[in-house]
Design a protein around this nucleic acid. Sequence first.
RNA 1: GGGCGACUAGCUCAGUUGGUUAGAGCGCUGCACUCACAUUGCAGAGGUCACAGGUUCGAAUCCUGUGUCGCCCACCA
Length: 1015
Amino acid sequence: MSTTLDSRYDPNEAQQRWYDFWERRGYFHAEPDERQPYTIVIPPPNVTGALHMGHALNNTLQDVLIRWRRMQGFNTLWVPGTDHAGIGTQAVVERRLREQEKKTRHDLGRDGLVQRIWAWKDDYEARILNQLRRLGSSCDWQRTRFTLDPVCARAVRQTFFRMFQDALIYRGKRLVNWDTHLQTAVADDEIFHETVQGHLWTFRYPVKAAGEPAGQAGEHIRIATTRPETRLGDTAVAVHPADPRYQHLIGRTVELPLTGREIPIIADAILVDPKFGTGCVKVTPAHDPNDYQTGLRHRLPMINILNPDGTIHANGGKYAGMDRDAAREAVVADLQALGLVESVEDYETQVGHSDRSKTPIEPYLSDQWFVRMDKLAEAAMDAVRDGRVRIHPERYTKTYLDWLGEKRDWCISRQLWWGHRIPVWRQPVSHDAPAQAAALRALETQPGAAPEDSIAWQINRQGTGEIVHSSHEEPSLFADLAEGDYDILVCMLRDDAALVASLEAAGFVQDRDVLDTWFSSALWPHSTLGWPEPTPDLEYYYPTSTLVTSRDIITLWVARMVITGLYNCGDVPFRDVYIHPKILDAFGQTMSKSKGNGVDPLDIIDRYGADALRFTLTRMTTETQDVRMPVGYACPHCGTIIAQKSEHQQMKPRDGRKPRIKCPSCKKEFQFSSPNFDPDAGEPVGRVVSERFEEGRNFANKLWNAARFALLNLENYTPGPVALDQLADEERWILSRLAGTVSEVTEHLERFRFSAAANAIYDFAWSEFCDWYVEMAKLRLRDPATRGPAQRVLATVLDHLIRLLQPVMPFLAEQVWQALGAHAPERGIPIPSAPADSVMIAPWPLAPTEWRDPQVERRIARLQEVIKAIRNIRSKFSVEPKRRVTAVLRTSADIAAELRGFAPFIAQLATVSDLRVGPDEGKPADSVSAVSSDWELWVPLAGLIDRPAEIARNRKLLGSIEGQLKSFRSKLGSAEFVSKAPPDVVELHRQREADLLNQKASLQEILHELEGVPG
RNA sequence: GGGCGACUAGCUCAGUUGGUUAGAGCGCUGCACUCACAUUGCAGAGGUCACAGGUUCGAAUCCUGUGUCGCCCACCA
């Protein structure tokens, strides 16, 4: 190890060097063999942007699992890749186009825009994959996939085709969330609600009496609305069937002012809450989800009044072409003029906004493609109910089951250009339906169409989603369908040029829409393995083992993968789903670049190292649903971290000058990135980082130095067998603790308790290995007589520790492993052997039960207690660190013998020159005391003792002991406790009471003496 | 409105099936740069476990209710 002399660990060199080493040796690559597989497919990051802290966490945990299982001997495969993220990526590219070139997508055309997005994708995919490498991810890069690549595209096509054939996919008019800015449907999950200050208007509509002109009789019905413009599309007014006020109106009609249309008054108990507003509701089936349902129930006409861009449709009469907001004002003004506005009040409403364009969503009736969910959802629910898929933490199964239980059909079409195009060609049934049927029949039998399953068709009643005929039947069946109401939909499994040509020649036109991104993501676990081809990979690695993801996509992604896995492969896509926490900032907000609180993993790697990042993230991963990570700005001048406050997020440029932060340490100022502005080019920028990662860096450094110590002490190492019964107590102890730690860590990982696993390693390495074993080992290492065996134990323990560490801190582990190999090329207890070429492929440590030794653990614990007690006294009385003291202990003969054996340690670790220990020892003059349940201790400190202070200290101690004693006595004095509590608990209490009584007696004696002897 | 979760030391979090007077890291205080490590070591201070009831011999832990916060779902014309 060339850097042996450097007491600081430099992660950068190790990272580059060992990652290349692993990759060159092909450790990341997997091929099916006779071993048991362990497979993870990455949740493919969106190519919309670079990876953030959430990704770093997600991928760290996957790599921990993969590296651990690899060491356990599994054939491990981690499939990497990225997601095209349809709407998200198109939106960012379009925004850039607009900002940088002042162009819209229409200026470029479909092919032009898609080309631009591919360029963006190439750029970000490279950045993302590089970030994963910097993180240390042991992905099989040869299997890198992208959701739009040919392998995935074929799977998408196959799935769509089969679902189409099985009538699980249909096309119909549905009310969807329409983004008028991007002009596409967006999913429910891509919407956020914002509170908007609006108004609630109450209008009066004249009721038309039978046979009379409207309004003449003077009866009006009062209707409240927050959206007056939608009344252009009203097709009914609804009242509650049991509302006595309106009984007489049900079945009559009103004239809809401004349109002149006459619409019915209907009764609907679901839509109408008689206690709200006037108890009368306008019904606009084409522009409101509830009204839409009402429209279906009452078979009302559905009048669309909006164009895709949010302006009023020709159906809106004189308002046609106006923007929706302008139309609202105009409608109100016109009704006002007619005297039909009864009142206007301020009103707060929740308005749905598109996540992507941040503009208000319009419920909009349009033709869309859907997957029928009823049976598919039921199968996916069963897979979780019967444990074929297990979700951890378990509470998230409820999220999964509740969502699937709704069985809402899945809208899979998007009016975008970036994505998998819907492979369906369409034309309406014409006046010459028999000829169309014949043409279809001809297509089916065309040479390119073989095998028979490459073309499928449906006859669909326009707008309804109803499939009236399908390719399971003879095409001639639909030859007698009337013109105008039906569409012929032809789905092609492959893009066969000749077939497409004949299709289009026959008048079919391909659907312009693309598929929802989640349609391709849903196939990810099997599409990446080569499905639909029966590849060896698919055969061997599917179903995958574990899915690691965050809770916000349990429904969008996890549930849908189970659905398609079962549908396509007949088996679940994974056995375990681990849901990890989300990382929030100090104020509980999600991190994002746009809020200025996002931490870039590369900044952390640069500052603290990849191992530090990984360790800290692993240690943060508890079972809670969120973890907080306070962030700060790193001063670009001196590196000091200044905590980010919410005011930093609010700061705005003033007088053209960007805000700056003044570093309290070096007094210089710097700029920072913010939601409100970008830093000036060339200015030093304070990066957003978090001090939390110091914990990981410090740990790495501690381990590094422990390794340095070991290596320095392994000069002239010779391998050889080690017999347990020849080892010293401290050696037996560290092996026992090591064995305990190994089984603990293994069990934690098996149960996805990442934080607990990291803590167990940390505590063992720092508090046991470094703090005690290394200090004690120094004695035997210095003595030529014991140096050899001591070296063998040291090398073996370090070897095991490094292997435990590998999954979490692979770079440091490899660095130490290689260096250790140079010093101790054979090591192990009882019989040494040559280690693996890399710690990455070394076997996961087993915990031999013969290493466990509870008795030696108790003995060392007692030793530690004595040493700590002496140190405590030294510290309290400000004894100079170098000054040697005498320690006197009164204890049983057994313990005395044991402690005498440990005298060198007590001398070394507590700076004791004279140790006197035995059953007959007594308090020396001018000494300070300590008591435990096993012994009484005195340290003579003539001249240093402040007698009144010492009395006070012991009195306080006595008070605490008496307090405890009281609580134990009252418990033991209770007949109920003694009779009802388990015997071992009672016994424990008795023991404890006896210990306390001993200590109390000792303290009383001490106090008696202190108070009795005049100061 | 329905559901889920959280509330433990100044901060971030542990606390396994109820059982010694509750732990860690950071921060804080004091001492120490002794030959692995000051990104360190040693010692210490700091908590009526959100609140109120209940179950129990015994509650941070189980039950009920209240409060505060967060998230998810459904949505108020």
